[in-house]
Write a protein that binds this DNA or RNA. Sequence first.
DNA 1: ACGCCCTTGCGCACACTGTGCGGAGCGCCG
DNA 2: CGGCGCTCCGCACAGTGTGCGCAAGGGCGT
Lengths: 248, 248
Amino acid sequence: MAAEQQQAGGSVWTRPQRPRREQPALSREQIVAAAMELLDAEGIDALSMRKLGTRLNAGATSMYSHVANKDELIELVVDEVYGEIATQDPAEASDWRTEVTTVAQSLRQAFLRHPWIASVLGQVGMSSLGPNLLRLSEQMIGALETAGFSLAEAERGMNTVSSYVVGLASTEAAWLTVLARSGQSQQEWVDAFWPAALQAVQAFPRLSRLYAAQSEGFDVDSNRVDSFSDGLECILDGLEARLRRAAE
Amino acid sequence: MAAEQQQAGGSVWTRPQRPRREQPALSREQIVAAAMELLDAEGIDALSMRKLGTRLNAGATSMYSHVANKDELIELVVDEVYGEIATQDPAEASDWRTEVTTVAQSLRQAFLRHPWIASVLGQVGMSSLGPNLLRLSEQMIGALETAGFSLAEAERGMNTVSSYVVGLASTEAAWLTVLARSGQSQQEWVDAFWPAALQAVQAFPRLSRLYAAQSEGFDVDSNRVDSFSDGLECILDGLEARLRRAAE
DNA sequence: ACGCCCTTGCGCACACTGTGCGGAGCGCCG
DNA sequence: CGGCGCTCCGCACAGTGTGCGCAAGGGCGT
């Protein structure tokens, strides 16, 4: 610490180098950005106000002038994640399916870029009403409404799609978090866990067959993205069906 | 504390009432059950090992003989929640759609009975491989496979449905948690938040129309269950479509 | 029958958390 | 130039998960 400085000098100059009002030295944006870095680098457990403070060359409680709570801070960071997703230019009006698919894929990838978000969504919920989330909602509802759905139908469709994306991406992200915490490579982790999984599953015939089939190697990652796209298209098929049904 | 007892008596009798080996006095099941009670009653923030200990007339660290971690404890409680869902008797082989729907609805209701689960799923993931979760997976895959899907298709279908259920129920449960923490009634909370929501949304035309339409009252709860069932049927429609497509 | 060991529960302690409070430095307005 | 207010920070408090070592008995070897 700076203990020796305090002992050497008087209390007058102990921290003269603190550049008080040249610029506020701490801003909401900086805090949110630093929190995002910390979360991406070390995960949710490493985010403490003290660590965030030191990373900003500030005290532990200095952020409370700009942010009410740790919870509010987290809400802000979450919306920042949503902010990474660009809304499409409405000029290039493409197929509604590709438009919805684009948003969904971007959302998934944003979640996988910031896996800590899974551990946080259950506390913050989608209820935070941050501007970026609202923007995404507006776009998706817009795509569905111009496709021919009523406004209420469009909202339900959006809820269905986004629930699917959030649910699946959360599971994936949680898995990534566990993986990261274990410190092993993906292959190591799978190898280590596979026997236990096989044994846990052996009382269930279909799961056993499934796991056995998956044993004879296949690419885990590519299967995952296929699986995501497949489920998404399944939902879109369901939506398209009711669109056609309404048109007749 | 029991300080005066120690001062008054010798250290010999300070805790003679502890019934050492008459019965183990603490079991995994008891611990999990008590944790569930505590979680249901006071939510995730109230679950600490100390509180759990006092509730079991035990010390704070006495559970660590039966449970490795707090995390492991939470995994156990989560699987206990899945355990509340009964698997259907395979004898009465009904329509695959109603079978899947039954599981999905039960899952949703279990989540809403224990809203704290939302804040926990992102840390534990579905990756815990607890026996009850496996049982549910087996049933759902079974329903899909006997309906005519291949094993791999059945797994993907299950993933799609369960991701949807988990995602949506998590959002709802998170909302319930926020509501409970606020201490207000649902109506009070909505009334208090509505102006802010309207203002946040006013930059987005479609969301504004949507919220305005929802302002002229309708039953929030019934709309929610309708919305859930609607999205679920949408997914099932999509699945059924590929079943028919494969049959041709 | 007696003494030893080994399991099991628990008190203590440590490092760490979020955050309320009061004070201190600085810029700005009157 | 004096007072006000906004930021920033050190301190302190209550509370957390959990590692460590001790104590108390039941079960077993002799």
